[in-house]
Measured scan of single mutants.
Amino acid sequence: NQASVVANTLIPINTALTLVMMRSEVVTPVGIPAEDIPRLVSMTVNRAVPLGTTLMPDMVKGYA
């Protein structure tokens, strides 16, 4: 099973992502692959992402 990116904290809308905000976890449904974490750093989220939420491609500006 592939690990996905999961919010390690509440990420407010329009926040630039940092490494400490994200962790990898095997979850269903599958979200952004964990190997993309380095690429996500400094990208911003377009909605509030609660703790434990899987990051989906449409949640990160410029990812999809």
Rank of each mutant, 00 (worst) to 15 (best):
L51M: 10
D36W: 11
L55Y: 00
Y63A: 04
S24N: 06
N8P: 00
L17P: 02
N1H: 10
L10K: 13
V20T: 13
R39D: 07
A34M: 09
M56T: 12
Y63W: 13
R23N: 07
L19Q: 15
R23W: 03
N46S: 13
V45N: 02
L55F: 08
V45F: 01
T44D: 05
G31D: 00
L51N: 12
M21V: 05
I13V: 12
L19R: 14
A3H: 12
R47F: 12
I13Q: 10
T28G: 05
N1K: 12
T9I: 08
V5H: 01
N8C: 06
P12L: 07
P38S: 12
V27T: 06
M21N: 10
K61A: 15
V45R: 00
A48E: 13
S4T: 04
R47Y: 13
P33L: 11
S42I: 03
M22F: 05
L51W: 10
I13N: 14
N14K: 06
V27Q: 04
M21S: 09
L55Q: 02
R23H: 10
P57H: 08
M21H: 13
S42M: 14
D36P: 00
A3K: 14
N1Y: 12
P38W: 12
R47G: 05
T54R: 03
G31K: 02
M56Y: 12
A64L: 10
T9A: 13
T18S: 10
S42W: 07
P12H: 09
V41A: 05
A3Y: 10
P38Q: 11
N46F: 06
R47E: 09
L51E: 15
M56F: 10
S24C: 04
L17K: 00
Y63S: 04
V27C: 04
I37A: 07
P29E: 05
A34K: 09
G31Y: 02
E25S: 11
E25P: 00
T15D: 04
V30T: 11
T28N: 14
P38A: 12
G62N: 13
P29N: 04
N1P: 13
V41T: 06
P38F: 15
Q2F: 15
E25L: 09
V26K: 11
T44A: 07
N46T: 15
A48L: 13
V49C: 04
G52I: 03
L10I: 10
N14E: 10
L10R: 07
V20M: 08
Q2C: 05
R47W: 07
P38V: 10
I32N: 00
L10A: 12
T54P: 07
L51I: 11
T15M: 08
T44S: 12
P57E: 07
L55I: 15
A48N: 12
S4R: 01
A64D: 06
G62H: 09
V27M: 06
K61L: 12
T44F: 14
R23M: 06
L40Q: 00
V41L: 12
V20D: 14
S4F: 02
T44K: 15
A64V: 11
A16N: 14
P50I: 07
L40D: 00
Y63V: 04
P50N: 08
R39H: 09
L19D: 08
P12V: 05
T54D: 00
I13C: 04
A16H: 15
A64G: 14
L17C: 02
G52A: 08
T9E: 13
R47H: 10
N14Y: 11
L19P: 11
T18N: 08
L51K: 09
V49E: 01
A7H: 01
N14T: 06
Y63G: 04
A34Q: 06
Y63T: 03
V60C: 02
M59E: 03
G52V: 02
M22E: 01
L55H: 00
T18C: 03
I37N: 01
P57L: 05
D58T: 14
K61H: 13
V41Q: 07
A3F: 11
I37W: 03
D36I: 09
Q2Y: 11
N46H: 06
I11T: 00
P29Q: 06
R23S: 08
L17H: 00
P50E: 15
L19Y: 09
S4E: 01
P57T: 06
V41G: 01
I32W: 01
N1E: 09
N8Y: 05
N8A: 14
A64F: 10
D58A: 13
G62C: 05
G62M: 09
G31M: 02
S4C: 04
R39L: 11
L55M: 12
T28R: 08
V45H: 00
V45D: 00
A34T: 07
V49F: 03
E35Y: 15
I37Y: 03
A64T: 14
V20K: 12
R39E: 10
A7M: 04
N46Q: 10
T18A: 08
E35G: 10
V41W: 03
P38C: 05
I13Y: 13
P38K: 14
V41K: 05
P38N: 10
V26M: 14
T53E: 14
V5Q: 01
P12Q: 10
D58N: 14
D36H: 11
L19E: 06
K61Q: 12
T53W: 15
S24Q: 10
P38T: 12
M43C: 05
T9R: 15
M43I: 03
S24M: 07
T9F: 06
V6G: 01
P29H: 04
R47S: 14
P50T: 11
I13A: 11
N14A: 09
A16Y: 12
D36F: 11
V26W: 14
R23V: 13
T53P: 00
A7R: 02
V5T: 11
A3L: 14
E35L: 12
M21K: 04
L19V: 13
V5G: 02
P50L: 09
G52D: 14
V27Y: 02
N8I: 06
V49L: 10
T18H: 06
A34C: 04
L55A: 01
V41H: 04
N8Q: 13
V27H: 03
V49W: 03
M21Q: 08
L55P: 00
S24K: 11
V45K: 00
V45I: 08
K61T: 15
A3D: 05
L51S: 10
P57Y: 09
Q2I: 15
K61F: 14
A64K: 04
V45S: 07
M21I: 03
V30E: 06
I37V: 06
T54F: 02
M22H: 01
I11K: 00
G62P: 06
D58I: 09
S42F: 09
T15N: 05
N8V: 13
L51T: 12
T53C: 05
M22A: 00
V27D: 02
P57N: 06
V27A: 07
M56L: 14
V6H: 00
M21R: 03
V26P: 08
I37S: 05
G52F: 04
R39S: 15
T44L: 08
M59Y: 13
T18I: 06
